[in-house]
């Protein structure tokens, strides 16, 4: 088999396995469902989320004009975020299911602002057609999964990359911390809207602790997946990464290239 078909085969197999999981248990999501948040909180998260979405939209327009051949990368990243964020993974020992975010991977491939826009589009499709999330809670879900997942993942990647970690390790850290940060933000959004007369941080801690048994191992899984995909892209088409976010990859430490 020719080498350049191997990547396509891997993606096809991953997609097929993903479909099997989706068929087995379709309705489990991490997103905040329609009607959970009061209207004032839902509106607040819309405003905060669009502070990030609007510059991201502008960046997409500018980058697609300036960077040749960006559209397939945007298509790949957007579809990957959509699939990953509706991919329910049953967690052994805990006995529950949840799914990764996909936005840390997107942030490494196309940058955090563009990844935010792609995450927002994925969340909108899920809210409209897949009964995942909701239109009223779209802003809150954008904030947790698209904004925080992208920016924390990207920040972790840059930090570990600057510390001369191998590319796999830097991307692993991005996936791991981006995933956990997403759920921490969801916990904060719920706690801030629903704590009533009780303690905000007490409720935040309780919700985060309830997420932890499912999300701790899932973060590791997201880290492994993110590390694997970014390593393959870096080894086979490193110019894809350096074109979109050049200020990170032009400063590639020598040790990282050796370790990748």
């Amino acid at each position: 088999m020719k080498e350049h078909y191997k990547g396509s085969l891997i993606i096809a197999l991953v997609t097929a396995v993903g479909l099997l999981f989706l068929i087995a248990s379709p309705a489990y999501a991490m997103h905040i469902a329609e009607g959970i948040l009061p209207a004032n909180w839902a509106a607040l998260w819309y405003v905060v989320a669009f502070v990030f979405v609007i510059p991201g939209t502008y960046l997409i327009r500018r980058k697609t004009r300036d960077v040749k051949g960006l559209m397939p990368l945007l298509g790949l990243t957007g579809a990957a975020i959509f699939l990953i964020s509706v991919f329910p993974v049953p967690v052994p020992v805990t006995g529950s299911s949840s799914h990764p975010s996909g936005t840390p991977l997107g942030a490494i491939l196309v940058g955090p602002f563009i990844s935010t826009v792609l995450g927002a589009i994925a969340l909108l499709i899920q809210a409209l057609f897949l009964a995942h999330g909701g239109i009223s809670t779209w802003g809150a879900n954008i904030m947790s999964m698209a904004v925080v997942g992208s920016f924390v993942g990207f920040g972790a990647f840059v930090l570990f990359w600057r510390l001369q970690a191998p590319i796999f390790v830097a991307a692993f850290a991005a996936g791991l911390l981006g995933d956990w940060a997403t759920y921490a933000t969801t916990s904060f959004e719920l706690a801030s809207a629903l704590h009533g007369t009780g303690s905000l941080w007490g409720m935040f801690g309780a919700i985060a602790l309830a997420f932890a048994p499912t999300q701790l191992p899932l973060g590791i899984l997201e880290g492994l997946f993110t590390g694997g995909v970014v390593s393959i892209v870096y080894q086979r088409r490193p110019e894809l990464l350096s074109r979109v976010i050049p200020y990170v990859f032009r400063a590639a430490p020598a040790a990282s290239k050796e370790g990748s």
């Binding site: 396509s8 096809a12 997609t15 993903g18 479909l19 397939p72 990368l73 790949l76 088409r237």
Partner: peptide, 16 residues
């Protein structure tokens, strides 16, 4: 979604 991922992956990586 799987078709889009596979198609774009092939465009980006497969045709390298």
């Amino acid at each position: 979604g799987g078709f889009v991922v596979s198609y774009c992956w092939r465009k980006l990586i497969g045709e390298k």
